[in-house]
Design a protein around this nucleic acid. Structure first.
Lengths: 220, 220, 220, 220
DNA sequence: AATGAATGAGGGTTCATTCAT
DNA sequence: CATGAATGAACCCTCATTCAT
């Protein structure tokens, strides 16, 4: 008697998940709502009951993903004050979530320019706060570790180098075929921590020809 | 009498440069040939004298960029055998070229999935060789520096972490408003070298709850 | 205990009034049932309890309006036999009703082609009878006034000129900002009566170049 | 040898004429670009070479029609200063043009609300000027004819009554089956001139029950 | 070497309408 | 009585591409 019906929320979730997969596969602009209709088994017009436009659909995916990512992080960091552990948790949360939600995170990383107007503003606001949180962890870290010698790495550079390392994985990491996540987390933290806090690198710069950079056919 | 006509090559170069800018601005799929016609001042059908399809145009841009990037690198590395210096030169070449040709490199980094078939194969082949070169530098580096203790960072992870750091810059680096390239190069090399070669990070892992990762609305 | 429920009729009336306003505002074809749902506060599917199709809804509006217009007119003309007064009452009824029910009358005037089949037939039948009534008033009028000199104005032309004068008001008349209805009624009756019954206009025609009419780019 | 090719302008003219017919037949909103494609024999996308949007197409039709209507009028009125003759020419031009370009004029009269924004503004501006011209003719007329007695008909009312008479014809006039244009022109001028200039109509007003107008189901 | 004109395929979106509940 | 959820058909418009000139 207890009919097994799918609720509105379940269906919306299915749609978001399917759409994320389609967007991840073909890219947002190349993907058509018809693709999503086909992949989800819901009629083209039926989809519009759940979102108002393709752009809103992208926003919903990004917003949901980001929301969960951040909310998970918050509960992890809640009781922790040691900067090293906080960084570790940050990286671990980011990578685990990324690997568990590869499609969504690819969409989040790759389609940041695809939103416009208010949607874009909102997602960017979330990104800014997430970046700020990362920045403050790095600053605590530097404050805690006094031994730094030589010119320190600019924090902004460090933050985005870290995000680059982490976000780039959708371009190469294949779960099951690459190393397990645990090892990736350890490796990334290790790499970044030693790099960020480690002693000065022997001077090498200034000796390269440089000038206006590499000549190329593009420069004419 | 000697009319100042623009040659075929000059015009092709103009088209590639313009198209790269348009693709960088709107993304490959969102950009239309009409956009490129408008931006270049060449008629829609006139463009087709210089390429056979939109996809070939993308290929030409990526192939040209990559070709120059690699050729520059080759001549820089030519006389150098010290692994540290070789890494430095690799990073410097990559970043300088990237910043000098931001549009093209964004297209190269961002639109790797937009090519198909033979075009894709060819660009991927170039990427593989470039990656291999980077890999071998990192291996030389590790071989040269004996002091490494503890579990070393997997080379594959290190390579892609490095590429992530470098390629991500199109998402944040604004020439003129951010630090000069020299400092960015120093910072990136410093960060990566210390990270890659530095001593083991105090064990932190294994203590996180994890399991299948963070619960999320996506996982239901 | 006596719940103050709105009856079926009240709700239907609300719907017709709301729909008339929406149709008047956006035009029948441009307006959507969703617009009416929004404007009336009744759910999209809930509306279909009161009519079977959008076209029937339009029919109901036109039929109701016309019915009331004619029924009012009938009771006004009931005891009156003087042709001038009968015309006056005709015009007054038409204009007053029009101004009091601007939305509905705009729909009636403007959307006469939007009905098809049986619906159209029925409304047209009502229009025909209404027109016939007007025609007969004009004929009585002419019969009563013997003084007409020269070629009389063809009745069919007079009838439709009158309807044009009257119906056009939805294009310009703004209650409150234009003259009061009374004056408009007087003015219209005056204009039409003098025109219809007045002496011949000095011959002016036949002197215009004309031929097939005005040359225009359309005629090529 | 002399190829019989149709020029751009000829094709545009064909499209405007065809589109006017389709819009007149089905109404602007109900008509689809596909209908116009079918009717003109030009492919759907091919049409967009000649206009940028359906709305621009409507604008082009209205603007062209109005332009010709007014330009014809201007050259007719050029040498004429007698108010009566000026009115006659105004009406004759309007009606002849209307009948010769029934489709376009129906679109012009019936679809005045279908344009928005800048397009609407421009057409309305033309309409305003045309209306002003008519108004000034009526004023000259009244000034010239001193004999007017009693309260004169408000000019604004007279102008729009005249336009109503004239524009309404798309609702009833069938060339070939109705009276010839000449007679219609004479009739309309006669009707309006006598009405507008004629002596006062015997007082009839004020005796009707009225009040707030006719009670109706709509007024609740 | 270059272009104006044209097109088939497909894009996102809206609509009137239905039906189980 | 009333609604939430769903759909097929159709809409306007854009696109990469072609081809005669």
């Amino acid at each position: 008697m207890a009919a097994e019906r799918t609720s509105y929320d379940e269906k919306l979730t299915l749609i978001l998940k399917t759409a994320a997969a389609v967007f991840a596969e073909k890219g947002y602009h190349r993907a058509s709502i018809r693709d999503i209709s086909r992949a989800s088994g819901i009629s083209l017009s039926g989809l519009y009951y759940y979102f108002e436009s393709k752009e809103e659909l992208l926003y919903l995916i990004q917003d949901h993903s980001f929301g969960t990512l951040v909310s998970n992080l918050k509960s992890l960091l809640a009781g922790e004050s040691d900067p090293r552990r906080r960084l570790y948790l940050f990286v671990e949360n980011h990578l685990r979530f990324f690997v568990s939600n590869m499609k969504e995170m690819k969409v989040l990383s790759h389609e940041s320019d695809s939103l416009e107007g208010e949607y874009r503003r909102r997602v960017n606001e979330r990104k800014r706060r997430y970046t700020d949180l990362c920045t403050s962890i790095l600053e605590e870290l530097r404050a805690a570790e006094s031994g730094a010698s030589g010119d320190p790495i600019p924090t902004r550079l460090a933050v985005f180098a870290l995000f680059g390392m982490l976000n780039w994985i959708y371009n190469w990491y294949r779960p099951g075929r690459d190393i397990p996540i645990d090892e990736m987390v350890d490796g990334m933290v290790h790499l970044f921590l030693n790099g960020y806090l480690g002693g000065a690198v022997p001077a090498l710069s200034g000796e390269w020809s440089g000038g206006e950079g590499t000549p190329s056919i593009w420069r004419r």
